[in-house]
């Protein structure tokens, strides 16, 4: 176990570009595990020590081991889907609401309407049952009132698109911490299904 862990720690993949280009690998169980261990570190949580795995912008990770998935969102939305039966979970960090905006982009995890089905499918593949999927979402803030892109209110559109996609795929939305004007740091514990959100530089809240 230890030798395997060490081997994985030393595999250096600083940009994960290969994963970003290949949608079929970006949420497959094996490559995502290998890449996630390379950038992870052990942190002392209140109860147990969990491995911290970072999910980058427009990226998606599915884990079956006890880890905490971490991401930072502003106007983007973090979708945390928890499989309570198999104690596994996945997190997708989406950027834009609709994949129709471009035709030559193949990145599934960038858009709300494609990321949700892909994440659900990856979770169903990793577990045996297709039941017990539930979701929590965070993000979609409107951080700078003077930013021109916000006149379109991308954050709001993202949140609506994610909710619609969850409904279409039959995944129950348990909790949300969306909109507002602060950037959020999202930590998703895939064993308990708890999501800790830190809004701005304030204290951590649980949703």
């Amino acid at each position: 176990m230890w030798t395997r862990l060490c081997n994985l720690l030393f595999t250096v993949n600083p940009l994960n570009t290969s994963l970003a280009k290949l949608p079929q690998n970006s949420y497959g169980a094996k490559p995502s595990l290998a890449s996630s261990f390379a950038t992870s570190k052990v942190v002392q949580n209140s109860e147990k020590s969990f491995q911290e795995v970072r999910v980058d912008m427009a990226d998606m990770k599915v884990e079956t081991k006890p880890v905490v998935l971490i991401t930072n969102v502003g106007s983007c939305v973090a979708i945390c889907i928890h499989d309570s039966v198999n104690k596994s979970g996945g997190l997708a960090h989406i950027m834009l609401p609709d994949s129709k905006i471009t035709k030559n982009d193949v990145l599934v995890s960038k858009y709300a309407d494609t990321a949700v089905p892909a994440l659900a499918e990856a979770l169903r593949k990793s577990g045996r049952s297709s039941f017990g999927l539930s979701a929590k979402i965070a993000g979609g803030a409107n951080m700078f009132s003077n930013l021109k892109a916000n006149s379109l209110n991308i954050g709001e559109k993202n949140v609506e698109a994610v909710k619609e996609a969850l409904e279409n795929n039959g995944i129950k939305l348990l909790a949300e911490d969306v909109r507002g004007t602060c950037g959020r740091r999202v930590a998703f514990n895939i064993v308990t299904g708890k999501v800790h959100v830190r809004c701005g530089n304030k204290e951590v809240t649980e949703i």
Partner: peptide, 12 residues
């Protein structure tokens, strides 16, 4: 605005 580095960048 305060927040983590990545969250501040992503709107732009």
């Amino acid at each position: 605005v305060t927040g983590s580095f990545d969250a501040l960048l992503d709107g732009f």
